[in-house]
Design a protein around this nucleic acid. Structure first.
Lengths: 348, 348
DNA sequence: CAGCCGTACTAAAGCGCTTTAGGCTGCTTC
DNA sequence: GAAGCAGCCTAAAGCGCTTTAGTACGGCTG
């Protein structure tokens, strides 16, 4: 029962060749579906390989120009910020699903900031480690697309804006603008006129898109008590900002939070301050998760299929690796799930 | 501004050799700190390499027997279970910190179950992809240690019990038993006699350890209204079990939840049923996170430094890769942070 | 001054795979 | 009946690195 210490050598193509009585090249042809071997030989080689439990060495493959069979994903977030965030694991989970199918590995790294992230790309590229990368949290004035383009590393930007300037980059994006517009429309219909958007990290492309759209929608309707305030996504800042805006002379009647964590913290804070949700103030969370059904009132939230988002991104990347053209694909607009935290504005 | 399509060839040792006017082997010696070159040559080679931006190709390195400079981590959880869980990203974050220092990559994969996980290990091993792995969520009767031992793949088990049977495996573990004992002791001191433990996944080593300890502590004190109920860690099951136990004739006065998500769901459920926390029922969460301070009452929780846990594990693995002996190291016992959700038992 | 040794370096093989350039059959074609 | 041509297969080079074996040279010894 205690396992024996067997050195357990991995079989190589040479072993297969010997056992099958053919040359190594024949084995290579056979196993890769290339012409140059008869069907019966091919089958025999396949059987031997199978029986020996052979798997190609990625190192050797990579070295002979086939690529590393690996894609990279780096997360640039200060370590403590990535605590309670369902988004990433879900996304990764979706990504994996399609990568696993193709036997592609996922090299994962978390770093502090974007410059570090760029350094990682350079290193991965120089070390031949990855065939392509998935870029998350695109920013306004992002240096990463230029870098990846320069390195010739295929990439798909997740959540970016459509980008025609970079030939090797695909983009998978959600229509934040449309979602924001529909949320504002809904709140407006409920009588809300003073709306505060507790946004995420300033500089993130989607944050800025949401802010711009909110502003535009407000202007279009002649609303003046509308603003966006950026945060670091943490519950602490979410609570602090909530406290601040509710403490003002003319507090907002609706709050839009850029993630579920802040929304939760916001509701708790509002309640503490004596505001009743949704009677005094409506709350909507941008990002749905179990959290939203874990407090009363249940949070109305913008929901989207994050795993599917990941799957789509991974598909685009594999397409790129197969030599396909860069594309821009839009995933469905997040839908607003109305639960208990939104209601008519007081006095409307 | 639109990036130019430069093929951007990676420099190789041959390039360095040419520029420095020495042989490739000299370059190798110089760059790897091996004897056989003079100091001045070594320095010259280093400068040329630097200036060319050279980085060793991991593929080539791996092929010539140096290992893949990569460690693996696979997460065996049904995709939807890993939603709201701060634990993993934190752990990974800590792991990365020490891996990055040594320029080791982290190959990451999420799969459905343990058999799939084993298949991944076999594949990684056969494909020469990783030099070692980190194993999480050890189980009772776990097939993984035997497998890894057989493959000769260095590994550290995170959260396992000490294990002397496997020579290549290190273990990093937290003293769940001690923590459980202290929690029970605290609750007992507050007058609690009927305690229910809403546990995590049955079959996980630490789940079983906690359950065993709880039972032992109860017996020692002659308590009869004490039990553990296993769940899938989800808020849904947490809520369901809470509802069930509180609905009984003699409901418990204290609840111990194996994660923060279930604890939160539990508090919400209890409140809904008309139980006041902590007046009617005390709640403690096993695993502290921002969540615990996001609802009122704030949750008392067992807190530990998860990033540090990850760091420790990664250190052990690098030690193993350096040829060190397998070890068993214990991380600090989780500390109970008393917040608002625990109090004296009613009538005590 | 032959013989020896240590230092600084080079040549070449090998890791496991892909791929190009042949080689050898046996068949058609004029 | 010789040239041409498939079809099937092998030999060998090459990917970028490490490592072993070997060479050249200067200085030491006896």
């Amino acid at each position: 029962m205690p396992a024996k210490r067997s050195p357990a050598r991995r079989p190589t193509m040479k072993d297969i060749a010997r056992r099958a009585g053919v040359s190594e090249s024949a084995v290579s042809f056979a196993l890769n579906g290339r012409p140059g071997v008869s069907e019966v030989t091919r089958e025999r080689v396949r059987r031997v390989a199978e029986q020996l439990g052979w798997r190609p060495s990625t190192a050797a493959r990579a070295l002979s120009g086939e690529g590393a069979a690996t894609v990279g994903l780096v997360l640039a977030r200060p370590a403590d910020t990535l605590g309670v965030d369902s988004f990433f694991l879900q996304l990764v989970s979706g990504i994996q699903e399609v990568l696993a199918e193709r036997h592609l590995g996922l090299l994962f790294q978390v770093v502090e900031d974007v410059p570090d992230e760029c350094a990682v790309y350079r290193r991965w590229w120089a070390e031949h480690r990855v065939d392509g990368v998935l870029v998350v949290d695109p920013r306004t004035d992002d240096p990463r697309p230029d870098l990846l383009d320069e390195l010739g590393l295929p990439a798909v930007v997740i959540g970016g804006a459509p980008d025609e300037r970079h030939s090797g980059l695909s983009t998978v994006w959600a229509d934040d603008a449309g979602a924001m517009a529909s949320v504002v429309e809904g709140l407006y219909a409920l009588g809300h006129r003073r709306i505060v958007h507790i946004a995420g990290l300033s500089g993130l492309a989607h944050t800025e898109r949401r802010i711009r759209t909110l502003r535009a929608e407000a202007r279009r309707r002649g609303l003046t008590g509308v603003e966006s305030i950026t945060t670091d996504y943490s519950d602490a800042e979410g609570a602090a900002v909530t406290r601040r805006v509710l403490d003002s002379a003319a507090p907002p009647t609706a709050l839009i939070y850029d993630n579920d964590v802040m929304a939760l913290a916001g509701v708790a804070t509002a309640t503490e301050l004596g505001f009743s949700v949704p009677a005094d103030v409506s709350v909507v969370a941008w990002e749905d998760s179990a959290l939203c059904r874990m407090v009363r009132p249940w949070l109305s939230a913008l929901s989207r299929d994050t795993m599917e988002f990941g799957r789509t991104a991974a598909c685009e990347l594999t397409a790129l690796l197969d030599g396909g053209p860069a594309r821009t694909v839009r995933v469905p607009v997040p839908r607003l799930i109305e639960r208990e935290s939104t209601g008519a504005a007081r006095g409307a």
